[in-house]
Structures are given as C-alpha cells and as structure tokens.
Design a protein around this nucleic acid. Structure first.
Lengths: 221, 221
DNA sequence: CACAAAATTGGTCATTTGACCAATTTTGGT
DNA sequence: ACCAAAATTGGTCAAATGACCAATTTTGTG
C-alpha cells in the first residue's frame, strides 16, 4: 500500500515531496491522468525532472501518492464540515448536504480522483488502494452516524455501515451524473431525494431492530 | 459527436471496423485505457497497424467509437432483459435486478466503460459523448418505467425521469463500490435497499401527484 | 566549522508510440 | 472479365516519454 519515495527523510525533502504532489494535482487537473507527463508534473511543481524521480521511484508511485493525498484531504475536509445533530435523520441530511457541497466545490479534483481510482484498480500492486479509498469514505460516514446512534440508539454499528454505504453509493452516482452533464438544480433535487430515501432506509433498519423478526429484511414488491 | 472513420463504406470495411472495435475491447480489458497502445489493439483485432489507421483517423477517434459501441451494447442488452410488469414497484424491482445482473456479469467491461467515459470527458471534442451516455441510460430506465406508468397512471413523464435518475445513481454508486472491493453478498443487500428506496421515492411522487399541494416537494427532517 | 548525508541538477538514452505514405492487393459493380 | 474504388500492408519517422547517472550544491548535525 505504501507509495514510498526514496532514501531517508529530511525536512526539505518532505516539503519538496508535498510540493511535487501539489504540482501533480495541478497538472492532472488540466488534461487528466492519461495526458499528464512527468515533465508536466515537474513543471507544475517548479522542480526539475530529475528531482521528481529522486523523490518517487516511478511515475506510477507518484500517481498513487497523489491519490492517497486526495483521500486524506477529502476525508479530513468532510470530517471537519459536519457538526453535531439531534438524531439520525438530521445527521443524514447534514452529512449529505455537507458532502455534496464539498464535492461540487471541487469537481475538477473529483474527476482526477475517479481517474486515479481506476488507475489504481488496474495496477496489481495498488488495487488495494482503491479498496482503501472506499473503506475510508464509508468509515467516515459510518463514524458520523455512529456518533449520533450511540446517543439515540437508533442504529447499531452494522446498520450505520449499511446506511453509510447507501449514502456513498447515492452521492457517487449523482456526482457521476453531474460530471457527465452538469445541472446544479437537477442534482440538488437528486440530493434531496437521496436524503429522504436514506432516512427511510435508516428508519427501516431501526424498526427492524426494535422488532427483530426472523428471516428476510423488509423489502417491498 | 461522430467518431467517423475514413472514406466511404464498403461491406468489408464495416466488418473490419467492427473487428477492430472488438479487438480494442479485448485489449482495453487487459491493462486499461492508459496502458493500451494502438499496436495492442491491432494485435487484438488481428489486423495490421496501418489498417487501424485507415479505418480510424486517430487513436482518440477509435476509443470514442469503442465507447459508443459499449453504450449501444449495454442499452440494448438491458432493454431486452426487462419484461413486462404489473406496476411501478414491480417494474423498479425487475429493472434494477436485471441491470445489476448484467453489470456484474460484465464487470471488466464496466471498468473500461468508466475509463472511456472519463477519457471522453477530458476531450473538448467529445465531452458530449459522456453526456449522451448518461442520457441514454436514463432514457432507457425512463422508457421502461413509462411503459408501465402509461398503463397504471402512477407517474408522469417527469416523475419517471426523476426515478430513472435515482435508480441509475444508486446502481452506479453500488457498482463503483463493488469494483473497488468486490463483495457480491453485500452488493446484493445494497441492491435490495436501493429497490426499496426507489419504490419509496416513486410512491412519494405518485402521492404528490394525487394530492398536488403547492410548494416544496416532500422531504423529511 | 567540518563533513557526511540528503537533495538537486543538467544532460543523456533507449524505447515506445501514434501517425503516415507509397505500393500492392482485394472487392464489387457493370 | 475489367477496372476504379476500397482496403490492406510493410516500412519509416519524428516526437514524446520515463528513467537514470555522474556531478554538484545544500542541509543540518556533531
């Protein structure tokens, strides 16, 4: 999983390393993963090509480091942006609103992230990074939900995980639609629908918990 | 939008053209868009490199043609696989099951499709193709829903479109999760949750229609 | 300050890659 | 069968690209 650079780490080295990742992010934002060369990245970072190769064993290692950075950045940004809420329903609403707000403010970054996720999926040595990415995002929402559920008792841990996955799937799908054909108003309606649906899903799970009937989970039709 | 080849079209030409696309699909399946060269594609198609360039103006045009092919293939496969249903709820269930079944049977193809969608999004001359893709899939589900709604009167055209978008977003998101970290059982639970949620969303719209109150759409919280 | 480790740099290299062209073969209509 | 158009092919090319190394400069620690 590690996208290790090279040699030991000095203070200056770490700074340059970040600088390169930042430059990579900028270069990747213009033109995408396929069109970005190591020279583009070096230029974007204000660094000589050889310096880039000193800090990263290969272009591939660098790209994976960028994805890791993006994951960290996204999770911490979202974690900060979500405040306390009274119950699960409110928590779902706030979390989805916060998430959608962040994603739409960083659309270009999200395209890069999708590209890098697929890139990682293709590499035998990095397929785990894609899995880690989704684990991280699901855990993020799960933690937020559980913070409330621990107080209200509406959901257990497994329930929170299921709801988190549901939220992530919905927001991911809506983001793809927004990227393919931007339409803020329509997407907002989509988010509202997702909020209501998630709340319904969560309260369904809560009811199952109060009345733990044997057999299948509740599904219509 | 056209990914036009070259010259006029003879019978043989069209056959070879398809053959190249098929070979491209195979080559792309192994290694992904980033790693696939025109030589790989030509080899996969059993064709000389120059032949490839005779039929397609550029690698880019070829890749976009592959995406178009993939879209056609997917929509027609799904259209065939969905039978008649009694009401909207059943239609939603059948459509999502059919869709999920097809997608999971063609996972590698779906990775390629995501890669190509992002590739198209990056190209100024082809961003419309990504939009076309999502329009096509949404229209597919919308048509299926409307076939039932026309009979039962449960939803109007706009409602069908909204529900179709909701379904697509959910299935897209779940597919990404499955790709990042395969887990058939968990994904199946996700699909069931999505079915229930979509049915809830649809019946909510249906109620709004019966009781067309002014103002905001129904949302909890 | 001294000096070893870390960091940076200019320059080079072998390959890969997409594109293309002149020449040849095949196709299909008459 | 004839022949123009279509299709295919081998061979070539310039550019791009990732990698790397020897040499130099900078860092920071004793």
């Amino acid at each position: 999983m590690t996208t290790a650079g090279r040699e030991q780490v000095g203070a200056k080295g770490e700074r340059t390393r970040r600088q390169i990742i930042e430059g990579a992010l900028q270069a990747l934002g213009t033109g995408g993963v396929a069109a970005t060369t190591t020279r583009d990245i070096a230029a974007g970072a204000g660094v000589r090509l050889a310096t880039l190769h000193y800090h990263f064993d290969s272009k591939s290692a660098l790209l994976l480091a960028v994805l890791e950075h993006l994951i960290d950045e996204t999770t911490s940004a979202l974690r900060e942006e979500t405040g306390d809420t009274a119950d699960i329903a409110a928590c779902i609403r706030e979390s989805l609103h916060a998430g959608w707000r962040y994603l739409t403010l960083t659309l270009e970054l999200q395209i890069v992230q999708y590209e890098l996720t697929l890139y990682a999926l293709r590499r035998d040595d990095a397929a785990g990074l894609a899995a880690y990415q989704y684990d991280a995002y699901i855990k993020l929402y799960q933690d937020i939900l559980q913070g409330v559920a621990a107080r209200t008792g509406e959901l257990d841990a497994a329930g929170c995980a299921d709801v988190a996955r549901f939220m992530l799937a919905g927001i991911d799908g809506l983001l793809l639609q927004e990227l393919a054909k931007p339409n803020k108003a329509r997407s907002s309606r989509g988010i509202e629908a997702l909020i209501a649906a998630t709340q319904g899903f969560a309260s369904g799970l809560a009811n199952d918990r109060e009345t733990p009937k044997a057999g299948t989970r509740a599904t219509r039709g």
